[in-house]
Amino acid sequence: MSAALIVVIVIGVILLAVIGWFIGAYNGLVRLRNQLENAWAQIDVQLKRRYDLIPNLVETVKGYAKHERETLEKVIQARNMAMNAKTIGERAEAENILTGTLKSLFAVSEAYPDLKANQNFLRLQEELTSTENKVAFSRQFYNDSVQQFNTSIQVFPTNIVAGMFSFARRDFFEVKEEAVREAPKVSF
């Protein structure tokens, strides 16, 4: 009688512990996934901000550097391409091209002292530099989150919970180094 009671109690305690762990693991995964989605949303916010800033920049530069039509057109083109990208991979590539064209635009602007003295231009330059950084840092945080998330849905025993509630692996936001490092063409 009392032995049976003890067995029941032991089983009950073990069951409670398992359920408690289960809840904890599930909540942990949900928290990670939310963090990841948040990080992804942040990248989007920053990219959008960059799209908004570019027309302003192009307008300002146009007034001073009329001979740089080609560079300006490339920037606009890259922006539109990035805005219309469908998949994550396509988008990442378009963003890299955009970063490259912006770099060459700023390199070209070095040749125009009047432009470099323009307060509006300086402000836009600072904003765009910072937006680039923000994109990079959000991506860094996103990738770290993805790594943490992917690790936790793969390791035992959390993978059981992940399998039951179909938490799927996430892709990294990759940067192709060559595209970023593409040397800006400078013409004086």
Binding site: N38, A39, R123, E126, S130, N133, F137, S138, Q140, F141
Partner: peptide, 18 residues
């Protein structure tokens, strides 16, 4: 100080401070 502001915002993003 736009630069200071931007740097703070950058680090908030990098740290995931929220």
């Amino acid at each position: 100080s736009p630069r200071l502001f931007n740097v703070v915002e950058e680090m908030v993003l990098a740290s995931g401070l929220g």
